[in-house]
Amino acid sequence: TPVSFQLAVTNLATLNLTNVFVTVVVDGPVQFLSATNRFGSVTNFTNLIFFTVNALTNKSVATLGYTLNPVSFGRIDHSVLVEATNAAAWETNFLTRIIAGRANLGVTFRGIPSGALAGDLLAYQTPVTNGGPNAAIAVQLTHTLPSGLTLLGVDPPGQTFSEISNVVTVPLGLMTNGASTVVQFRVKPTLAGTLPLTASIAAPGFDNPGTNSQATASLKIATPGPGRLAAFVKGPQVFNRQNGLMEQPAMVTNVGPTSITAARVMIAGVTNWVYNAAGTNQTTPFVVVEGLLPTGGSAQLLLQYFNPARQPTADPDLSGLDVPIPGPTRPVGTVVPLSAAQPGPDGFVTLEFPTI
C-alpha cells in the first residue's frame, strides 16, 4: 500500500530566503513513486529526493510531499537536510515502521510437573493462541531451556524444531484469527533445584497488541529424602482376564527412623511395559505410593505389566525412595490409535490396539 509523507519547511531566519535545498534520504524496503513541490522543483535518484524551493519569505512555510511503496515489512529511515544561503543548515530524521498486520499472539505454560527427581522423563505444554484481529504467518515459538534440562523431543509427532545453545525454535506457520495449538516439550532434568522456563511467541513483521507474548514458569526438581525404604514382590505374576494385564502384588516398608509422606518404588529389570507406572527415571519405570508411611509401616501395591505373551517373566528388582508428594505428572505421550472398543456386561471396556 503506498504511503505518503509531508514535510513542512518553515523560514525562521528573519529574512527572505532564495534557493532553499531540501534533501531527503530514504533507507528501507521501499520504492519511490512520486514527489510534489509547488514551490519549485524536485529530483529523485533511487532513494534520494532533492527538493528546491525557489523562494521562502520570512515565517512562511513550504509544504513538500513524497509517496513511497513499501515492498515488505520493516523499518524505513528518513534523513532530512535543509540548506540555504545566509541561513544555518538544519537536519532531522524520523522512522516509519511497516507491519504485516496485527495479531494478538499469546503463550502460556501448562502441566509443569512437581515432585520430580533428576533423571525423570518429563513433559509440559505451551498452549499458543492468536487473538487476532489478523491472521499471522510464519509464527514462531521460542523456548529457552535452563542449564540442567535436556530436551528429548517436541510434540505433536512430526513437529519440526531446532535447538541452538539451549534455545528451542518451533515454527508453527500460519495461525488464523482465533486459532490455537499446543506444543509439548519432552525433557529430562540432570540437576536438582529450581529451573526457570521461558517461552515467547512472535511472527516477523506483525505487531502484537497483547501482553501475553512471553511466559515464564519454574520447574522444581527435588532430591530424594533421607527415609529408608525396602520394596519387594509379594507373589507371582498372574494374568487378569478382565484387563488383559499381567499383575503382581508388591509391598514397600518404611525401615527408617522417621515417617515419610510418599514413596517411589523403582521397578528395574522388567522386559515389558509397566502399565501403571507413574513415570520413568532414566530407563527405569516407577510407581508412587502417596500417604503417610510411619516407621515400620507398609503399603501394598499392585504392579501391572503389558505382556502380549500373557506369561510370567522374571521378577523385577524393586527399590524404594523417599520422595516429595505428589509425584510427577504423567507425560502426555503420542496418541495411540484404537483398533476396537468393546463394552462388557461388567462395566469394563475392552480396548484393542494395533501392533506397536
Rank of each mutant, 00 (worst) to 15 (best):
S79N: 13
T18N: 14
T190V: 05
T253W: 00
G106L: 07
N272R: 11
T92E: 02
P324V: 09
T198K: 11
D207S: 14
A268T: 03
T67M: 08
S4P: 02
G296V: 07
A202Y: 11
S79E: 04
L121T: 08
P294M: 07
N130E: 11
A299S: 15
T283C: 02
L152Q: 09
G279R: 11
V9W: 06
T142P: 03
F306S: 11
I99R: 12
P189A: 06
G225Y: 07
L56H: 12
F45L: 12
Q184M: 09
V335F: 03
V25M: 04
I356C: 02
S180K: 03
E247A: 07
P209I: 08
G65S: 14
V80S: 01
A116Y: 05
D120L: 07
N307L: 05
T295P: 07
R241K: 11
G227V: 09
N11R: 10
Q304E: 13
A138T: 03
T334M: 03
P2T: 11
L229K: 00
Q248Y: 03
T23V: 09
L292W: 00
T57K: 14
V22M: 08
T355W: 02
V61K: 10
Q248G: 05
A202S: 15
N276P: 06
A230R: 12
F206A: 09
K220A: 12
S34L: 06
S41I: 09
G106E: 14
L121E: 01
L33H: 00
E163R: 06
L56S: 10
R75P: 01
P156E: 04
P209G: 06
A116I: 01
Y124C: 02
L121M: 09
S218W: 00
K59P: 00
N307P: 05
T43Y: 11
W273Y: 14
G153N: 02
P337D: 13
F161M: 04
M246V: 02
G320I: 02
D322S: 09
Y275S: 08
L195G: 05
L229P: 02
I260A: 03
T1E: 11
G119W: 07
A136G: 08
V270M: 03
Q300R: 13
T57L: 15
A341M: 15
P157E: 13
R102Y: 05
D207Y: 15
M175V: 10
P204W: 02
Q282W: 05
V323P: 01
S114A: 13
R330N: 12
P285N: 09
S72L: 11
S147T: 11
L105V: 12
F51P: 07
G132D: 06
W90K: 15
Q311R: 14
A135N: 08
T313C: 01
Y66F: 14
A217S: 13
R38I: 13
T126N: 09
F286T: 08
Y305E: 06
G111K: 10
G115L: 04
F206H: 10
V53C: 03
V53Q: 03
G153K: 01
Q311Y: 01
N166A: 15
T280F: 08
G269M: 04
S218D: 15
L293P: 06
G297I: 08
P354N: 07
S4Q: 06
D27E: 12
Q248N: 01
T295W: 03
A84G: 10
F109P: 01
L12D: 10
N86Q: 13
Q300K: 09
T52P: 00
Q237C: 04
G132Y: 05
G333N: 07
P236M: 02
N272D: 12
